[in-house]
Structures are given as structure tokens and as C-alpha cells.
């Protein structure tokens, strides 16, 4: 053992304090630093985020290239329905799987391995851990997915421009659409973090995220149209995706209203996770 540890004697009123001076208070900033080390020291983080970017950019290029090559064979209706911006960004639908799964894993991975007990022993307040995980993951996802979205858009439009089909970032609403993809995916990630913390289980968390985003809208379609139209626009995925819509269609929320509703779902899930995190045994 190190010789700096003084041989404090037992007995006195105060507990022995061998070793160096310490100001080691747990702060939100320090927990953030800790979570950053955790996030970047797992191979799965890089693998999953690369998959998300590749899906976003690759599928966008694939769809755009396909349209550019087949434009002459497309029906007039297909041509009329063609939206250059969304075609190049369509990869978000796949990217959300990767982002959602990673969001769940950021929390559930600690429960699955038992790491969570070491984490909560180090940060007994627990909530700083949730805020750090959510904030950090949101920042990383937003940065990468916004960059990916921009790349997908520029690459897709470059492929389409040979046919003079391409849109430009200067077109009305296009910047919102491109940014919207990054924002939507960020909130999908946050939803993943929250549901991972609520359910404390990887399989359950993933099922919950994609049940909410992919299955619930399909179920809503089973409702009579008079109801379904009203319900659908308030569902998390539909509301969230309205931020990417270039033109507002009937029975959809305005872009930022929809996005705010989507954020509301994530906020409620995070709040629920926070309450249970404090209350439950680790």
C-alpha cells in the first residue's frame, strides 16, 4: 500500500481519514464527464451510431439514385407524388431503429450487467445519472444525425440534379426538413433512454420504443376514419414526423406544434423514469 496512507488509529470520535485531501463532491458536471467516458468506451456505441449514419445517407442516396435512373419509367402519379427532399432523407426511418435501440441500451445495458449498482453507489442521488445520460445522448445523436441528414440531402439532391429534379436548401421549408430529421431522431433517442430507465430491461425497452413509434400508428388505422384521423396526428411518431413535412396535409399538426407534442411524450417518459429511479431499489 502507498506510504501516504497514515496509520490513523482507531478509537477517536471522528472516523479515520487516511490519505489525500479530498474535495470530491459529486456534481452534475462530473457525472456528465463520467457518462461521457462510459459512452465512448463501448464498442456498441460506435457500431450503432455508424449504422444510423450509414442508413441515413446510404438509403437516401439509393432512393435518390433510383428515382433519377427510373424517372422516365415512372407514372405521372408517381412523378406528381415525388418529393426530392424527403426522398433523400427517407433513410431516417431505418436510422431511428439504431438510435432508439442505442438509447435504450445506454440505460438498460447497465441493469443487464449490474453496472447500475456501481453507478448508483457512486452517485446516490441517481437523478444526475439520468440527466447526464439523456443530455449526452441527445447531444451526440443530434450532432451526428443532423450532419447525416445534411449529407443525405446534399448527396441525394446531387444525384437528382442530373435530371433537374433536385431541391436546394434555399427552397422553402427545406432547411426545416433537414434539421427536422436530426431533431426527430434525437427525441427518438431520448424516448429510448427514458423507456430503458422505466423498464430496466433491454428487450422490454426496445419493444416499448418501437411499439410506440411503429406499431401504435398501425393500430390507429384500424379505428374508424372519423376517429382515426383525429387520433393519429397526436400519436408520438406522427406528431414528431410532422416537423419534417414540407407541406402540411389534412389531419396533421403544424410542424413545430407536432414536434412539441413529440417532445412532450419524451418529457413525460423521462419524468416518469426520474420518479421511479428515486423510488425503486437498484
Amino acid at each position: 500500500m502507498s506510504t501516504t496512507m497514515s496509520a490513523a488509529t482507531a478509537g477517536g470520535g471522528t472516523p479515520p481519514r487516511p490519505g489525500r485531501a479530498r474535495q470530491g463532491e459529486v456534481t452534475q458536471l462530473r457525472v456528465l464527464h463520467s457518462e461521457w467516458i462510459k459512452l465512448r468506451s463501448l464498442r456498441s456505441t460506435f457500431a450503432t451510431l455508424i449504422v444510423a449514419v450509414v442508413a441515413l445517407v446510404g438509403l437516401g442516396a439509393l432512393f435518390s439514385g433510383f428515382v433519377a435512373g427510373h424517372w422516365d419509367h415512372m407514372t405521372a402519379r408517381e412523378q406528381a407524388a415525388f418529393r426530392p427532399g424527403m426522398t433523400s432523407l427517407r433513410g431516417y426511418f431505418l436510422a431511428q431503429l439504431a438510435v432508439g435501440v442505442l438509447g435504450v441500451l445506454v440505460v438498460s445495458g447497465e441493469y443487464a450487467t449490474g453496472m447500475i449498482r456501481a453507478t448508483f453507489a457512486a452517485v446516490p442521488g441517481r437523478l444526475p445519472v439520468l440527466w447526464a445520460k439523456a443530455g449526452l445522448f441527445a447531444a451526440v445523436t443530434w450532432l451526428l444525425m443532423t450532419a447525416g441528414s445534411l449529407m443525405a440531402f446534399l448527396l441525394g439532391q446531387a444525384l437528382l440534379s442530373g435530371r433537374h429534379l433536385g431541391a436546394s436548401l434555399g427552397d422553402p421549408g427545406e432547411i426545416r426538413q433537414v434539421m427536422g430529421v436530426g431533431l426527430y431522431l434525437t427525441v427518438v433517442g431520448l424516448l429510448g433512454v427514458a423507456l430503458g430507465a422505466l423498464l430496466r430491461n433491454t428487450a422490454g425497452g426496445i419493444a416499448a420504443v418501437f411499439g410506440l413509434l411503429l406499431v401504435v400508428p398501425v393500430l390507429a388505422q384500424a379505428l374508424p376514419a372519423s376517429w382515426g384521423d383525429h387520433v393519429d396526428q397526436w400519436l408520438p411518431s406522427t406528431a414528431g414526423q410532422s416537423v419534417m413535412a414540407l407541406h402540411r396535409e389534412a389531419h396533421t399538426l403544424a410542424p413545430w406544434t407536432g414536434f412539441a407534442v413529440f417532445c412532450g411524450y419524451a418529457a413525460v417518459a423521462l419524468a416518469g423514469a426520474a420518479v421511479l429511479l428515486r423510488r425503486r431499489d437498484a
Partner: peptide
């Protein structure tokens, strides 16, 4: 109480950082 995917060094570093 260790994440199986992380190295011992990073495990300790993350706990220390808190």
C-alpha cells in the same frame, strides 16, 4: 457490477470521474 463491454481501465475511470 461491471459492464461486460468496457475495459477495466475505463470502468474505473468512469467511476472516478463522478
Amino acid at each position: 457490477a461491471v459492464h461486460t463491454g468496457r475495459s477495466a481501465y475505463h470502468h474505473l475511470l468512469a467511476l472516478a470521474a463522478t
